[in-house]
Write a protein that binds this DNA or RNA. Structure first.
Length: 527
DNA sequence: GGCTTGGTTGTAAAT
DNA sequence: TATTTACAACCAAGC
């Protein structure tokens, strides 16, 4: 008995290594490849900005084209996903919905809703994991139900699990010929919208073009240099090179235009041929495992993208300063290195990993003492590779809220960039106003004399802002704050431990729900 | 439990 | 000017 299936693309916008699409084709007599463009859902759950909209639409267009070559097409239906499903299940006589399994709470909720709809309307639902190397649940199980909180421990668990799932074979025209494709009239009716249709600003200077085709091309291009691949060492890559010094594949993994499993095994093959190769955490495979690490922790940590209610996150009273936050976001801090990075982020939607460190440290524990959640939201909007788990995880890392705790290590917004680009070519590219500044001042232009500023064609305080803080003072101050936070944390932990020595106290503590307190069952403790 | 070890990518002084 | 060394000192994990 063959199904009439809607295959719902969500993140896996590709035809290579797409196990659930393959399963859909093998179990169906008719297949409708559908992308539901639910703007309310996408905007509220992922806060996607203009560059990402462009990237998404390009990826959908590419998917449509590639499906066309195999005798099918992509139907992009706009509207609220549940009512769209309801309508079309009946209209098309659907008996099965297939979709990629995702781990974000909003995608999980969507899947649960679709399951419920299936029970109600009588269709089957099939979902398979293919966005991560492993099914993260297996990693959690092996670690006793809780996520490993260090990379080392994580690698240890993986060594028990063995290699990740191998990619499934590529889809062919024959796979699609076995199923009836949607009527050509439908494809016309549900074509991929243009940015202008969605009222998204048409200018797009980003050098990144969305889609599986472009992603695979970039992947092949990088893999041809086997020596580079085998010796890749992340900390040695350059954050302020004018072209990316890393692979730049992250936007394609983020949207599922590329399969991490495909990349993982291509790397394994190259490593097998090479005499020597680098290892995690710094190797290319190590980068994929970092992604996997944050996926694993996020999947098992409540409120992972916020501080409050997040059990692994240090609770800090960050400053609320809308004006400084805005200046940081708009590349107006007065630190050329920081502003150049934020400009590249705004213009292109991608910045190097270490550049992310520099601006994240600056916003949080380094200089401004503003919550990592604010920075995370800005990255979510502007980064093409923005990803629920990785974004939140790294922001906690950089703000020393979780994973990383050596808070005395603060990136200097002046010196950090100098190491790899003493001439300041990166700054000159992204802050053209400073183009002619002498190199000795380019990282801290306010130290140049008035005469030199005039010669360089830029007056500090007029054409380019004064630095918004004194880095030395700010970072010293924040160091003290962080110390206090940790001492306080220590003290409360100590208190809880002392209390726990008395079994009676433990019982009382467990019973401290608001309800019991209000009923007078439990004495209020002095706090 | 207490103690040791090590951590993707610092800073500043001393050589 | 480059490279080495001391610094301060956190936490998770493992014995």
């Amino acid at each position: 008995m063959l199904h009439r299936t809607i295959h719902l693309f969500r993140k896996e916008l590709r035809l290579h290594d797409n196990p659930v699409l393959l399963a859909a084709l093998q179990s169906s007599e008719a297949l409708y490849p559908v992308y539901i463009l639910d703007r309310a859902f996408l905007t509220s759950s992922m806060h996607i900005g203009a560059l990402r909209w462009h990237f998404l639409l390009q990826s959908l267009e590419d998917l449509h084209k590639n499906l066309g070559q195999l005798g099918s097409c992509l139907l992009v239906i706009q509207g609220e996903y549940e009512s769209i499903l309801r309508d079309h299940i009946q209209k098309w006589n659907i008996t099965q919905v297939t979709l990629d399994a995702e781990m974000e709470p909003f995608y999980k909720e969507m899947e649960a809703n679709i399951q419920r709809l299936g029970t109600e309307l009588g269709f089957e639902v099939l979902s398979l994991v293919s966005h991560s190397l492993y099914d993260t649940q297996r990693i959690l199980d092996l670690n006793g139900g809780s996520p490993p909180l260090t990379y080392k421990r994580f690698l240890h668990i993986l060594s028990l699990l063995g290699d990740p799932e191998v990619p499934v074979r590529n889809l062919t025209a024959e796979d699609f010929q076995r199923c009836r494709a949607p009527d050509p009239g439908l494809a016309e009716c549900y074509r991929v919208p243009l940015p202008v249709d969605l009222k998204i600003s048409p200018e797009n200077l980003s050098p990144w073009r969305g889609g599986e085709t472009e992603g695979l091309q970039r992947l092949e291009q990088h893999l041809t240099d086997e020596g580079w691949v085998a010796s890749f060492t992340k900390p040695k890559t350059i954050p302020n090179s004018l072209l990316p010094s890393t692979t730049g594949l992250s936007p394609y993994f983020s949207m599922g235009c590329l399969s991490v499993r495909t990349f993982f095994y291509r790397l394994s093959n190259i490593y097998a041929q090479a005499k020597h190769h680098s290892l995690p955490p710094v190797s290319l495979q190590g980068q994929l495992l970092w992604r996997e690490f944050f996926y694993t922790v996020a999947s098992a940590t409540p409120n992972f993208t916020q501080m409050v209610g997040n059990p692994i996150c240090l609770q800090i009273c960050w400053y609320r300063d809308a004006e400084r936050l805005h200046k940081w976001k708009m590349a107006q801090t007065g630190f050329p290195w920081i502003d150049a990075i934020m400009t590249q982020l705004r213009q292109e939607g991608w910045i190097h990993h270490l550049a992310r460190h520099a601006v994240a440290c600056f916003l949080t524990r380094g200089d401004l003492w503003i919550s990592w959640e604010e920075g995370m939201k800005v990255f979510e909007e502007l980064l093409l590779d923005a990803d629920y788990s990785i974004n939140a995880g790294n922001w906690m890392w950089l703000s020393a809220s979780a994973f990383f705790h050596q808070y005395t290590r603060i990136f200097c917004p002046v010196r950090f960039g100098k190491r790899t680009d003493p001439q300041g070519n990166y700054i000159r590219k992204y802050l053209p106003i400073l183009k002619n500044f002498p190199s000795k001042y380019i990282y801290e232009p306010w130290t140049a004399s008035e005469e030199e500023q005039k010669q360089a064609g830029c007056i500090i305080g007029q054409d380019y802002p004064f630095p918004m803080v004194n880095h030395k003072e700010a970072s010293d101050h924040n160091l003290q704050l962080m110390k206090q936070v940790r001492e306080e944390q220590h003290r409360t932990a100590q208190l809880t431990r002392d209390d726990a020595d008395d079994p009676m106290e433990v019982n009382v503590k467990r019973d401290h729900s608001e309800e019991n307190i209000s009923k007078g069952k439990v004495a209020r403790t002095t706090e």
